[in-house]
């Protein structure tokens, strides 16, 4: 890393000032790490949480529609700060790493160790591949508009194929009680949850009467459209929140 020419060009400080500057970096990184775990995880848990918590919510219609839509929020806002003001193309990846670390800690200690749920039943989804692509598209295009259109679309479209290698195997059918179920459904039936009766699930609503079984690609493309809008909205929300105004009174 020390041979990186950007580092030499981009370092106006030397000696103690450089050390002070670097120590400030570390402080901010620690601050940001916990900030984005706390806030982004809360945002995700309370908007798409049920789809992310439980295997038997990870359906082909709503899960690929809503998850990217609500998970592009903080990445867009943090990108607007880190890219516009610091040229750091890592806002989305930072948010997603924080979210996953926070989710894993909770799944292990709150679900498994406290209340005995098997961890495979509460595996989180990943949007890290999507986030990486979103970051590099922003960096390469240096354009909010192009990123909103192509990055957000990629963000949504990559979601399902990124997660199918993990969750596809839970959609293998089993015969149970004289009917076919997925293994994911069976988890919901077998591992008892007092507060999550089956009827609460928002899955497979609607009839798909026009396009047969092609639910997932349609949901993903719709999500891509919505993500484009959501990205733009949250980019500006991020800019608005990162105001530097001082007020006379509040």
């Amino acid at each position: 890393m020390t041979t990186n020419p950007a580092e030499l060009a981009a370092q106006p400080y030397s000696g103690e000032k450089a050390r002070l500057s670097r120590h400030f970096d570390y402080l901010i990184l620690v601050l940001a790490f916990f900030l984005y775990i706390g806030s982004f995880h809360l945002n995700v848990a309370l908007t798409v949480g049920d789809w992310d918590f439980w295997l038997d919510w990870k359906d082909r219609q709503w899960w690929p529609l809503i998850t990217p839509l609500m998970m592009i929020t903080f990445p867009a806002a943090v990108q607007s700060l880190l890219w516009e003001r610091f040229r750091l193309p890592m806002g989305a990846t930072l948010c997603m790493c924080c979210l996953l670390i926070g989710s894993w800690i909770t799944r292990v200690f709150a679900y498994h160790y406290w209340n005995y749920f098997p961890i495979n039943m509460v595996l989180p989804a990943t949007m890290l591949p999507s986030a990486l692509v979103l970051d590099v598209i922003l960096m390469l295009t240096n354009s909010m508009t192009f990123t909103a259109i192509f990055g957000s679309a990629a963000f949504a479209l990559l979601f399902y194929p990124s997660n199918w290698p993990m969750f596809g195997m839970f959609h293998v059918p089993v015969e149970y009680g004289g009917a076919q179920l997925t293994i994911a459904d069976l988890f919901g039936f077998q591992y008892i949850r007092a507060g999550m009766p089956e009827y609460l699930r928002i899955i497979e609503r609607g009839t798909l009467r026009t396009y047969g079984q092609y639910a997932t690609p349609l949901a993903s493309f719709f999500s891509a459209l919505l993500c484009t809008l959501m990205y733009t909205l949250w980019w500006h929300l991020g800019k608005w929140f990162a105001t530097v105004r001082y007020l006379k009174k509040i």
Partner: peptide
């Protein structure tokens, strides 16, 4: 923000886990 982590991440999501045990 460290305090926000415990509130917004760990204990907030843990609430979902506890509601699978307790009847509200």
């Amino acid at each position: 923000t460290f305090a926000v982590y415990w509130a917004g991440s760990y204990f907030a999501e843990q609430d979902n886990s506890w509601h699978q045990v307790v009847i509200r």
